[in-house]
Nucleic acid binder design. Structure first.
Length: 461
RNA sequence: CGGGCCGUGGCGCAGCCUGGCUAGCGCGCUUGCUUGGGGUGCAAGAGGUCCCGGGUUCAAAUCCCGGCGGCCCGACCA
């Protein structure tokens, strides 16, 4: 059916229409990675359990959700393997062997892979036990350089979510309580879904020298001294597809921004008799070719035995940005009917203008979808100046059946005890935005200590 | 690990309480005709270990016992 995926035993089956969207996102990310000097490589799925234990915080953070292989080849293993929940440890192991000198640095690697985290509660695309992702892993000779990388990749993620997926995000620093297990600092991009809930859409970590020390990744500096490398890691997953769906879709089905839509436009032919069919198909094929053809994401719906109405619904449900209707009436007039998926508006245009109109419309849809999402984010971001206010805003939303979730901006100190207090409201501190769009410094609403800026508090997926 | 619900053609379900004819409905599927500018209509047809095992009974999808599987709600999470 139209659903892009289904779930079995907590794991995801991604169907062609869902996977095609992921492929577009992959391509957009990958070209950006390459452009910033990264290379793809691949590490094993199975990681010796002992590797995990080398970084104390890391193993503590991931233990509860590990899937472990204890038997292989019919025999109990001397040492268990874990199915990778992420690859920092095995990569640390190899970095130690590959890096000797500052001349070997930086190492800028990325891997496209699947990982497994045994979640108790799964949700299609947003939280499944197995998911596809990319994980970037880099090693640097200084903390400054590593931090530049961390921030650079955060912006790469935001670039793709905002400019390709039309999904606006808040870039920021995670609180200490929320950071990646084993990292010094974690940055994230946070998106707001249509119901106002937050979705962590990507993370970028400053690993400091934690893994360098745990795996003895040392290098000789220019000055001839030994030092541990500074590492980063960053990742986004198929969760992005879920975010995309929940950002733009409506009651009729998917709505895909043109830049991620695998199929950008479909021509639905309308005819009664065979000779009409032949004439319509000929023009449809010509127009489709002019518009870019099948490789350009343009299709003619040639299926027999389906009424045009059924075809319209079919493509609408799948989120195709533009659907054309072409029938005998249009052949006579030299026109074609163009319909936008996002607004539902129909326009009769000259066939001669079809290519130009399509391209212009695709661009319009792209920017309209982004602006609409951006406006929603803005409208549902509110200030709070006391913990009571935070609570009441967050609680209001519980009653609102179709959402009403908010990004609550408040001054809050980065202290795990403060995070715990927020958790009582079934919400969390999403991040501390890089750019302060509000009123600057203030006093923590819980402790009164001075803080630089407001943090984002929200309920999240 | 707590609380609730459910296993019946591919999918969604009814039937079960109160046992009894050939196990039914919708969607989907196949074939033919018809229709076609927003889910065409008609006709014919294919498709079933009623989750598994045991028990009660003349008789079990239905009642009893045991098992297995799945879903939803809460605490962990990209």
């Amino acid at each position: 059916m139209a659903e892009p995926a289904e779930i079995v035993k907590g794991c995801m089956v991604i169907k062609p229409n869902g996977y095609a969207v992921w492929e577009v996102i992959q391509r957009e990310l990958d070209t950006r990675f390459k452009a910033s000097g990264h290379q793809n490589l691949y590490f094993p799925l199975l990681i010796p359990e002992s590797f995990l234990r080398k970084e104390a915080e890391h193993v503590e953070g991931f233990s509860p959700e590990l899937a472990i292989v204890t038997i292989a080849g019919g025999k109990k293993l001397e040492e268990n393997y874990v199915i990778r929940p992420t690859s920092e440890t095995i990569i640390g192991h190899f970095f130690a062997r590959w890096i000797q000198s500052y001349r070997d640095l930086p190492l800028l690697y990325n891997q496209w892979a699947n990982v497994m985290r045994w979640e108790l509660r799964t949700r299609l695309f947003l939280r499944t036990s197995e998911f596809l992702w990319q994980e970037g892993h880099t090693a640097h000779s200084s903390h400054e350089e590593a931090m530049e990388e961390v921030i650079r990749m955060l912006h790469v993620y935001a670039d793709v979510t905002e400019n390709v997926m039309a999904m606006p995000v808040v870039r920021g620093l995670k609180t200490q309580a929320e950071r990646f297990a084993g990292a010094l600092r974690t940055y994230s991009i946070e998106a707001m879904m249509q119901n106002g809930l937050a979705l962590q859409a990507g993370t970028s970590h400053d690993l400091g020298q934690n893994f360098g020390k745990a795996f003895e990744v040392q290098f000789q500096t220019k000055e001839g001294k030994l030092d541990y490398v500074w590492q980063t890691s960053w990742g986004v997953s198929t969760r992005l597809v879920g975010g995309l769906i929940m950002t733009h879709s409506d009651d009729k089905g998917l709505v895909l921004p043109p830049k991620v839509a695998p199929v950008k436009a479909v021509i639905v032919p309308i005819y009664r008799k065979d000779e009409e069919r032949a004439q319509v198909m000929e023009v449809a094929a010509r127009l489709a070719n002019d518009m870019g053809g099948i490789l350009g994401g343009i299709q003619v719906d040639q299926r027999e035995g389906q009424s045009p109405g059924a075809k319209f619904f079919h493509w609408e449900r799948r989120g195709v940005p533009v659907v054309f209707e072409l029938g005998p009436r249009d052949l006579a007039s030299g026109n074609i009917v163009m319909k936008r998926r996002d607004t539902g508006s129909k326009e009769v245009i000259a066939q001669a203008d079809a290519v130009a109109k399509l391209n212009a419309t695709l661009e319009t849809i792209q920017t309209d979808l982004f602006n609409k999402a951006k406006q929603r984010l803005k409208d549902n971001t509110v200030l709070a100046n006391s913990i009571e206010e935070v609570e009441s805003i967050l609680n209001e939303d519980v009653t609102a059946e179709k959402g009403g979730g908010k990004f609550v901006m408040a001054h809050l100190a980065d202290d795990p005890s403060n995070d715990r207090r927020i958790k009582e409201f079934k919400a969390s501190v999403r991040n501390i935005p890089l750019v302060d769009e509000f009123d600057g410094p203030g006093k923590c609403i819980l402790t009164g200590v001075p803080v630089e800026k407001r943090v984002v508090i929200a309920k999240a997926y």
